[in-house]
Every structure is written in C-alpha cells, then in structure tokens.
C-alpha cells in the first residue's frame, strides 16, 4: 500500500513541477512579448562588468514590481 502512495506522490510531484516549468517558459515569453520585461538585456551583465559600468537594474525586483502595479 505504502509503495503505491509513494509512486503516486512521485508522479504527481513530477507532474506539478513539469507544469510549473512550462508555466515558467510561458511566463518568460509572455512578459517579454507584452513588453513588461526584457530578459535578454541581462546578458550584458557579463560584458559590462567594470565597477563603474552603468547598472542595469538600480532597484531590487521587489521595488520594481511595486511600481508596475
């Protein structure tokens, strides 16, 4: 009996995580399409990394998201 429950738990958790992963893909592309966010600009973080290079985000995400609302 226990074994069955574990298999179910295993499959369900994997299922949930897979759905979330796909949800994440959707979320990424949607928020970029709607112009809310530009993820690709973060790629520049590795290139312009002098201490006096301009920062890409000057506010932490928690504050930025407040402004959006």
């Amino acid at each position: 009996m226990r074994e069955e429950w574990r298999i179910i738990a295993y499959v369900v958790t994997s299922g949930i995580l897979v759905v979330m992963l796909y949800g994440y893909i959707l979320y990424l592309y949607r928020s970029e399409k709607s112009g809310k966010r530009d993820y690709e600009k973060y790629g520049k973080l590795a290139l312009d990394d002098e201490i006096d290079s301009p920062v890409i985000e000057d506010k932490p995400a928690s504050e930025r998201y407040k402004d959006e609302k």
Partner: peptide
C-alpha cells in the same frame, strides 16, 4: 565565454530555463 568573446549569451531566457 561571453566576456572573452564579447558576445552576450545567445538566449538569456534559455539559460534561466
């Protein structure tokens, strides 16, 4: 690799995924 080549990561979204 991006820093040495001067090319940003091809897809930042793919890297997150």
């Amino acid at each position: 690799l991006p820093k040495e080549s001067g090319q940003p990561v091809y897809s930042y979204k793919l890297s997150l995924l």
